[in-house]
Lab assay of single mutants.
Amino acid sequence: STGEEYIAVGDFTAQQVGDLTFKKGEILLVIEKKPDGWWIAKDAKGNEGLVPRTYLEPYS
């Protein structure tokens, strides 16, 4: 699937089932941008889950 690459600007630990845990500096592939501010993203290992958009910045 296609998506946009974003870099994590902080650590995030999953708070509920379906969230994706990530560390600062990780590159995430954003698959869907939901209007509530929680985006669906995939990490380098292929894990998929919800992430808070405030922790992400476009990666170029």
Rank of each mutant, 00 (worst) to 15 (best):
V51S: 04
E48L: 09
D11S: 06
E48Y: 02
F22R: 00
T2Q: 06
F12S: 14
K23A: 12
P52E: 15
V17P: 11
K34I: 04
L28E: 00
A8I: 02
L56D: 00
G25R: 06
G18M: 05
P35S: 10
S60P: 10
W39Q: 01
D19S: 15
E26Q: 12
N47F: 05
L20I: 13
L29W: 12
V9P: 01
N47A: 09
K24F: 03
E26Y: 07
I40G: 07
G18C: 04
D11C: 14
E4P: 07
V9E: 10
F12H: 14
N47T: 11
I40Q: 12
G10C: 09
L20A: 02
D11H: 08
D36H: 06
S1M: 13
W38K: 15
P58L: 10
Y55H: 11
S60A: 14
Y59G: 12
D36E: 06
T54P: 06
E48H: 15
G18I: 10
K45A: 07
Q15V: 09
Y6T: 02
K33N: 09
G46I: 01
S60I: 15
E48T: 10
G46Q: 10
D19Y: 14
P58F: 08
Y59L: 09
S1Q: 13
T21G: 09
K34C: 05
A41K: 00
V9N: 05
Y55T: 14
G37N: 07
G3K: 14
Y6S: 02
G37P: 08
T13I: 07
W38R: 15
D43K: 08
K33D: 04
V9F: 02
G18H: 09
T2P: 03
G37W: 01
A8W: 00
L56G: 00
Y55K: 13
L50K: 14
K34F: 06
Y59Q: 05
P52V: 07
A41I: 07
T13C: 04
E48C: 05
L50M: 10
V9L: 04
E26D: 09
L50T: 06
Y55E: 14
G10W: 04
I7N: 05
E4T: 11
G37A: 15
G18R: 12
V17H: 04
E57K: 07
Y6A: 04
A41Q: 00
E4Y: 06
L50A: 04
E4Q: 07
T21L: 05
Y6D: 00
L28C: 03
E26G: 07
I40R: 11
L20W: 01
G46W: 07
E4D: 04
G25D: 09
D43G: 08
W38G: 15
I27T: 12
V51T: 07
V30D: 00
F22N: 00
T13L: 04
E48Q: 14
T21M: 06
K24I: 02
E4G: 10
K34Q: 09
V51I: 09
W38H: 15
I7C: 13
N47P: 01
P52Q: 15
P35L: 10
A44I: 06
K33H: 09
F22M: 13
I31E: 08
P52D: 15
T21Q: 09
Y6L: 04
L56E: 00
T54K: 14
T54A: 14
K23V: 08
E5F: 11
A14N: 10
T21Y: 02
W38V: 15
R53V: 06
T13R: 03
Y55P: 08
A41Y: 00
T54C: 10
K23I: 04
T2L: 07
D19E: 15
V30R: 01
A44R: 07
P52Y: 14
I40Y: 08
V51A: 06
E26P: 00
A8F: 01
P35Y: 07
V9C: 11
A44D: 05
D11F: 03
G46P: 00
G46K: 13
Y6G: 01
T13A: 03
L56S: 00
G3C: 13
E5H: 02
P58W: 05
G18F: 03
T21F: 09
Y55M: 14
K23Q: 09
G3T: 14
P58A: 14
K24R: 09
K45Y: 06
G49V: 02
K33W: 02
G25T: 08
P58Y: 05
G18W: 05
T13Q: 04
T2W: 03
L20Y: 01
P58Q: 10
P58C: 05
G25F: 03
D36G: 11
K23R: 09
V9Q: 08
T13G: 03
L50Q: 14
E32R: 07
Q15S: 13
Q16F: 06
A8P: 01
Y6W: 07
E57R: 03
I7P: 01
D19G: 15
W39C: 15
Y59C: 11
K45D: 07
D36F: 06
E32N: 07
P35V: 11
D19H: 14
I7V: 04
K23P: 04
F12K: 14
K34E: 09
K45V: 06
T21S: 11
Y59V: 13
K24T: 03
L29V: 11
V9A: 12
R53G: 12
V30C: 04
Q15M: 04
Q16L: 03
G18E: 11
E4C: 07
I27D: 02
K33I: 11
L29N: 08
P58V: 09
I31S: 10
Y55D: 12
G37K: 15
P58I: 05
E26V: 06
D11K: 09
L29R: 06
D43L: 02
P52F: 13
L56Q: 00
L50S: 10
E26W: 12
G3I: 14
D36Y: 12
L20M: 12
K23Y: 04
P52H: 14
D19P: 11
I27M: 06
E32Y: 07
K23L: 08
S60V: 07
W38D: 15
P35H: 06
Q16Y: 02
E48R: 07
G49I: 01
L28R: 00
V51E: 00
V51Q: 00
K34G: 06
E32T: 10
I31N: 11
F12Y: 13
I7W: 03
K45Q: 09
K45N: 08
G3Q: 13
V51L: 08
I31H: 10
E4W: 06
A14K: 08
S60T: 07
D19W: 14
G37R: 12
A41G: 08
P35Q: 10
